[in-house]
Design a protein around this nucleic acid. Structure first.
Lengths: 209, 209, 209, 209
DNA sequence: TATGAATGAGTCTTCATTCAT
DNA sequence: TATGAATGAAGACTCATTCAT
């Protein structure tokens, strides 16, 4: 894909990736300044355009890079767990770990979700929708034991509600925290309470016994 | 406020408003091009700056304009209805009408919520937060009869779930529709089914009798 | 010359002239704002361009207007006085009166002298040089009794020195005063001392007896 | 200071300096067009703003550049000469050389002295007043042997007259020449005659013996 | 391969002048 | 005749991208 960039020394690659993610997260695609990235990464003006033909290509590379990152997270999940609430609980704690490993990724993901620039919007849709817009909702719902749900409720709808609640909760928390000590245990507990509430409501009585 | 613009012929005012909303919705504040607005509205370069002193003033005008628009919608709602699901149902059908009257407003609202530009961010917070960030969640939950909820669930959490579901559903639908024949009756029916599901789950049995 | 302007009611004419002189004096030709003149004179945008075809024509009119004003001052002088120092003394006190009658004229004259704008520079040279650059030096030196000067000095040079000294003194004073109580008696006395000094130096001994 | 500009090839630097001085001299600070400078210097639009952050910085650079130039001239003068007329004679011939080396400097200096733009006025005062407003009058009068003057004349006034005469003569000559073959020997001789005249008038008899 | 100076299309904004009413 | 909204050329300045070294 990006042979010139790939064959760079890893330390330099990382510097460029971090700088670019930081700048794109802060300013969005159009407003992001290649000058700022160059300065932060401590490379020459021309170099960036040697590695990537233009700003868009750099952005698309980062899109793929972040997608790979998320993919790896997903790979760590136990997809054999068939209880949806246990799975969502696991996802949350995995996100928690992920955040501490690579916090900028979250800011960038949020920026991607909010990106308006026409030039890259379609590419985002193509590559990232599954991760960004619904956190891989389809995948998350695969192999779920639907027999636990109450018979009188539409399972697809229930799953949507669970997912939207997860997204809503995440956004609410990120608004509240915003760069303090980040994700914390109390937030995980609060999320547990949401999951419990929904479990009590959506599962058959005997499942909640 | 904006006397020169106000005294314009309505047809021209509307052309300018529509063009500006379209451009700001598409590109955000910073990247939005006054040239594009001028071209789309079919007015002269200087005219825009006769009506509004600068780009920011135009944007702030649109902020107020859209706030007024939403306020009018809210005023039409029956705030004496204490059943949360009936209220959310009414809100949905009101949004439905609103969308058909002024579809661009929705795109612009989304753009406002995502706006990063420092120059206007504080103004957005000042004027729009109540509408944009939580769709007036607080207001929506005021005067709600909470005795109908099951005793074993946290009411605040339940309300959050209802709200996040509303937001999630709206986004899902708008993604699916995206400028075709707009909101339609089928979507309203589907939303009813979501509300019914949640009602069955969150309310006491007798309320669902 | 400017028939439309001339047939205006005098009160309105004066308002426009004062406003224009004030603005041109403050900002120079290019930078002067017709908007400012219009606002100050309390007339409509289009009116100014009815009376004068464009900014340049207005400026040229003011040039002539101020030239007439100066001409009137000169007409009041006693050109039969043949002693150059007495004449320069009279000129100074006439300027003194003139300043109190129409102070803006001086600021405008200074602005004219400093005007750089290509568009009007040649016109200034054509019409105003005699007044501005040398205060009508030629005229001032006409009919002077040159026999009073020492025989060993070049009369033309002596007269130049007297004139340059007058100009230098005027500029020095205007720098020092700069919009306080304007010209004052002390300044006139100091100027007398300069004239006395030069008289003692340039005139024959018997003239200073 | 201005590292990007400083490290340019000298030929290009000179082209830019000449073009900028020409434009600022012709039009003053505000009205001077960076487009014009760019065209005249044959560089790209963006280049000028790579070298200097903005128009003001370019102007301030020129201010310092011209100040250095004048300073060098002054340094060449013999400040141990205590006879004021000899000193003024030397100044004139130094100016003569200076003019032939860098004629535009004179026009620019005149423009600086007449500059009205608020944005740069205070900077001019800070850096240039000593050179511009009085041609370093104070400095010129330092270390002068005042005992040679006649006892019956005010020495400060006499010095002012000499200085104003110098300024007046310079302006008269520059008006007459105005970009032809520049300063010439005849002008220097004429200036000598003025100095002789004043010496005969202001000095004691024995000094003129 | 790495560099960073050079490029110029594009940005918002101003203002003298025109012209329909 | 008086009006002021409309016009658009010109202003300073930005920044992704190119290219000679």
């Amino acid at each position: 894909m990006y042979p010139k960039f790939s064959s760079l020394e890893p330390e330099k690659k990382e510097r460029i990736i971090k700088a670019a993610i930081k700048e794109f997260a802060r300013s969005g695609y159009e407003r992001a300044s290649t000058n700022e990235i160059i300065k932060e990464a401590n490379i020459a003006k021309g170099s960036l355009f040697n590695y990537f033909h233009n700003k868009k290509e750099l952005y698309l590379f980062l899109l793929d890079y972040i997608a790979d990152f998320i993919e790896k997270i997903y790979d760590e999940l136990d997809w054999d767990e068939t209880d949806i609430f246990k799975r969502f609980k696991e996802i949350a704690s995995t996100k928690f770990k992920m955040y501490n490993r690579f916090p900028q990724a979250f800011d960038f993901l949020q920026a991607i979700a909010q990106e308006n620039a026409l030039e890259v919007k379609s590419e985002i849709d193509k590559r990232m929708k599954k991760f960004v817009l619904d956190n891989g909702f389809e995948r998350m719902c695969r192999n779920i034991d639907v027999t636990k749900f109450r018979d009188d409720i539409d399972i697809e709808k229930a799953m949507n509600i669970i997912n939207w609640t997860a997204l809503g909760f995440a956004e609410q928390q990120s608004d509240q925290v915003h760069s303090s000590e980040d994700f914390n245990v109390e937030q995980l507990k609060e999320w547990d309470r949401y999951l419990d509430l929904m479990k009590r409501c959506f599962y058959k009585k005997e499942e909640n016994a």
